[in-house]
Write a protein that binds this DNA or RNA. Structure first.
Lengths: 338, 338
DNA sequence: TAATTTTCAGAAACCGGTAACAAACAGACG
DNA sequence: CGTCTGTTTGTTACCGGTTTCTGAAAATTA
């Protein structure tokens, strides 16, 4: 048994397809009586207008694409949660794509989206390469794009970010005030603007407190747990920092594991602070001081911005930047010795 | 500037649309030369076949829908990650829907999917209500459905689950062997089969070790953190259990928080074990003994099963059940006093 | 009552592809 | 040279809706 279509429904009611179609859209003229009759019959026969036929005719899909570097990550899953909520309220569906931080996948996803599959794109970039021209084609096709959190500076499109510079400055300042003077900064992709911005906050805080900058303390990490463990252990042994500031949640965990392995006590020997959306940071051993981004809210804002662009493209400045505040939450991992 | 379509591409090449169309599908006859010429021109003009037009004609969408209770949850985000990987390999796209454990949303999502938007559905159910007839209509529409993890027993469709009974039995047994005799079982939805199965393992383990069953120790929790905190504190004070077994990750965290508040020491005063997909369970204070489900693999298996159904519906028995093993990982939260 | 406007329903074109069928053309063969 | 076969391309109907245009009937107005 196949799906019932508008033709069959029309025949069952002895009406034309155009009349039946009208019953499902509010604007057109149709008598109240027939509309009722059609809707009743439609419900009885469980008729749903074919989505692809409507989309083809109307030239819009009521679907938005969400591209993120990874899914199994607290920040992104919370952000998607926020996007999903707004999309549902607006009657939109969301397609999810994970780039796994691979540039090729990012390019491929974007290219495929040129086919009308989605009406707009919300994206947090992978940041693996420097050629972002493939994103410029979107504007030509009138496919609105909103960046969130991880962005490309050279692409002009609205974005939702957090006050990364201030947060980083505060984070480094906090470590300094807790007595740290050799603070390592852990980053995954130094080239990505978010990594750079956060690093600048760290550097400026050092300068304010006249702490010499040692570039060996800027540690470039990878996405592999194993490699990071090696890198971090080496760094901890050789450079003996008394504070670690991680620009990414995962690196805070990696630091914990490395410290466990090396019998370095947190916070006595080493204080740790990190960007993190982990809800159970208070349950860690020791509880982790975090800069927590409003992940769900970022998703919500990004989605609302995209919908605004869809509803009236002129109303949104392409340079629009929504900046939300992260929160520095002090916990045991940066406590001073009693 | 609008999207270029097949007609314009054909005109640019002085060919008919059918010839151009053929260049993009492998089966049809077309000379090698023209195919090359077409593909080159397509690339030059950045032509992408309109997805909705193809879908309408071919009556399939190359899209699968994934319905989960929540997104901001380690288990589900890992499972989606697994699904996404397989889908991408197969050239499929995935639509994501979160029910937020609300029955109405689940029904509404399923109903909307009758419109051809997706070729198949992978779902973990909300379990809020008892009428699941809306799912039976899917089979009539030849819309394949695969359950994973949280399933409805009364719906006959392939499923991917874990050995919940055995895992629960082992978990309870582990607590008993560690010296617990008053073990609370924390559950969110007692009616859901997964809650029942897991509870049975717990009950049978108690029986095997001749430990009396006290139904006050079966604690029905909610999805609200605040409510759970109240419920758990009350339970801990009144019933003084020496072990807690949580059927859901979130409840293990809630137990930790409650114990912190009440100064109950884990594991000395109370041992805790729980189902959890948290990768950083070793970093908790104390590290949490978990039954860890192979979340990503569950997603992968569910997706592979769905694709098998799509490729040859007869080849998959509707009673097909893929059972994967969870792992019991012992950590400090269930350690015996030295 | 006749003229005019309004209301409501149907016919048909259209969205952008796909594929069955038709046709043109080249080469093989008697 | 004519017929046959195979290859390649074009013509056209179709997928399932939406919407413009058209016309008949009903309602309003003169």
């Amino acid at each position: 048994m196949h799906n019932i279509n508008i033709k069959e429904l029309a025949r069952a009611l002895n009406l034309s397809t155009s009349t039946v179609s009208r019953a499902f859209r509010d604007n057109s003229d149709i008598s109240k009586g027939t509309k009722q009759r059609i809707l009743a019959k439609a419900k009885e026969l469980n008729y749903q207008p074919n989505h692809y036929a409507s989309n083809l005719r109307e030239q819009r899909s009521k679907t938005i694409a969400v591209i993120v570097p990874e899914l199994a990550n607290n920040f992104f899953s919370q952000a998607i949660h926020g996007i999903e909520r707004i999309a549902r309220e607006k009657g939109y569906h969301i397609l999810i794509y994970a780039t796994e931080d691979e540039y090729e996948k990012e390019v491929s996803f974007i290219h495929h989206l040129h086919n009308g599959r989605a009406d707009g794109i919300i994206m947090s970039v992978s940041g693996e390469a420097n050629d972002h021209t493939y994103l410029n084609e979107l504007a030509q096709k009138r496919l609105p794009l909103v960046f969130f959190d991880r962005v490309y500076e050279d692409i002009v499109t609205p974005r939702v970010i957090t006050n990364d510079y201030d947060s980083s400055f505060s984070a480094a300042e906090h470590l300094i005030k807790q007595g740290c003077s050799r603070i390592a900064y852990l980053v995954i992709n130094k080239n990505l603007s978010i990594g750079k911005t956060r690093m600048q906050g760290y550097i400026d805080a050092l300068e304010k407190y006249h702490i010499p900058f040692d570039d060996r303390l800027i540690v470039d990490c990878s996405n592999s747990y194993k490699k990071n463990n090696t890198i971090l252990k080496k760094m901890l042994k050789e450079l003996k920092p008394d504070g670690v500031f991680t620009s990414v949640e995962r690196l805070a965990f990696a630091t914990y594991y490395a410290c466990y392995d090396l019998d370095i006590r947190i916070p006595d020997d080493l204080k740790v602070i990190g960007f993190s959306s982990l809800e159970i940071a208070p349950l860690l051993n020791p509880s982790l001081t975090t800069i927590t981004q409003p992940a769900t809210e970022i998703g919500v804002e990004a989605a609302m911005l995209l919908f605004k662009m869809l509803e009236s493209p002129e109303s949104v400045d392409v340079n629009k930047k929504v900046v939300l505040d992260s929160k520095l939450i002090k916990r045991k991992s940066t406590e001073k010795k009693a």
